[in-house]
Simulated scan of single mutants.
Amino acid sequence: MTLDPKHLHHIQSFTNVKPPRILDRQLPLRKRYHSKPEAAWVYDHAKTVDAQAPANHPLHGHVVCGEGIPVDVPVSVHKAVGGESDFPCPGEILAAALASCLDTAIRMIANLKGIELSRLEVQVSLGADVRGALMTGDNVPVGFQTAHLKVELNTECENSKPHLNALIDAAERSCVILQTLRAPPTVEIERSFSVSSVGNVTSS
């Protein structure tokens, strides 16, 4: 999958300029949230659509991520449960969310601390016993049971190992996806049904 030209142009528009100072951007926000805590609430969104992958097709899907500059992502069921694995599977998208969240947290905190990064890579590996999803095997849970992250970074100047460990520790504390996985929220699912027939549609 390649980037849409409009997304590529947007990326180039900020990679070719001097990096901003995160403190300058965050100070007004911190002051605002201190006086108006309710303003600190944000809601991230994604939704699946069935225009490209029909609802009755069992092996593929299509998810739209974000609202400002939405990104279309084709989705495949993992071959370990009967799919094709020819597009990212949902577990890989979760791994991508975790990797990107920790990556951006490290970038911002390094900027705040005046640490100039020359290289950064965050790797995520999530492991699951798929017998749980296939409902086979005794007492096999559904979901990922292992998670391993690896951070590799280089800096432009000499930084002590304790200093860099403090950077990663701070990034872990502020990484929303990581902290969500460590202390998951209650998940509510709203349901809406419709039954279509010739000349008749009913909903409940």
Rank of each mutant, 00 (worst) to 15 (best):
M1E: 10
M1T: 07
T2F: 15
P5A: 01
K6C: 00
K6L: 01
H10A: 13
I11W: 14
S13E: 11
T15M: 14
T15A: 13
V17C: 02
K18Y: 00
P20S: 12
R21V: 15
I22P: 00
L23C: 01
D24Q: 13
Q26Y: 07
Q26P: 00
L27I: 15
L27K: 14
L27W: 06
P28I: 12
L29A: 09
R32K: 15
H34A: 15
K36W: 05
A39V: 01
A40G: 07
A40Y: 05
W41V: 11
W41R: 15
W41N: 13
V42Y: 12
V42E: 15
V42T: 15
Y43M: 05
Y43C: 05
D44K: 07
K47S: 13
T48A: 12
T48D: 08
V49C: 10
D50N: 15
D50C: 14
A55Q: 13
A55M: 12
N56G: 10
H57T: 08
H60V: 04
G61F: 02
C65E: 04
G66H: 05
E67P: 01
E67S: 08
V71K: 10
D72F: 06
V73S: 09
H78Q: 10
A80N: 10
G83N: 12
S85P: 06
F87G: 00
P90C: 08
E92T: 01
L94Y: 09
A96R: 03
A96D: 07
A99I: 05
D103L: 03
T104N: 08
I109W: 04
I109F: 02
G114T: 11
I115E: 09
L117P: 05
Q123C: 04
Q123N: 07
V124L: 06
S125G: 02
S125D: 14
A128T: 11
A128G: 13
D129T: 09
D129Y: 08
V130T: 12
G132T: 09
A133F: 06
M135R: 13
M135E: 14
M135V: 06
D138F: 11
D138P: 01
N139T: 01
F144S: 03
F144T: 02
T146W: 07
T146R: 08
L149S: 03
K150F: 04
V151W: 03
L153A: 01
N154C: 09
E156N: 10
E156Q: 14
C157E: 15
C157G: 10
N159H: 14
S160G: 11
K161E: 15
K161Q: 15
N165A: 06
A166N: 10
L167F: 08
I168A: 09
D169H: 15
A171V: 02
L178Q: 01
L178H: 12
Q179G: 05
Q179K: 12
Q179E: 11
Q179M: 06
L181E: 05
A183Y: 07
P184K: 04
R191D: 07
S192P: 00
F193E: 14
F193H: 13
S196K: 08
S196Y: 08
N200C: 10
S203L: 03
S204Q: 11
S204W: 02
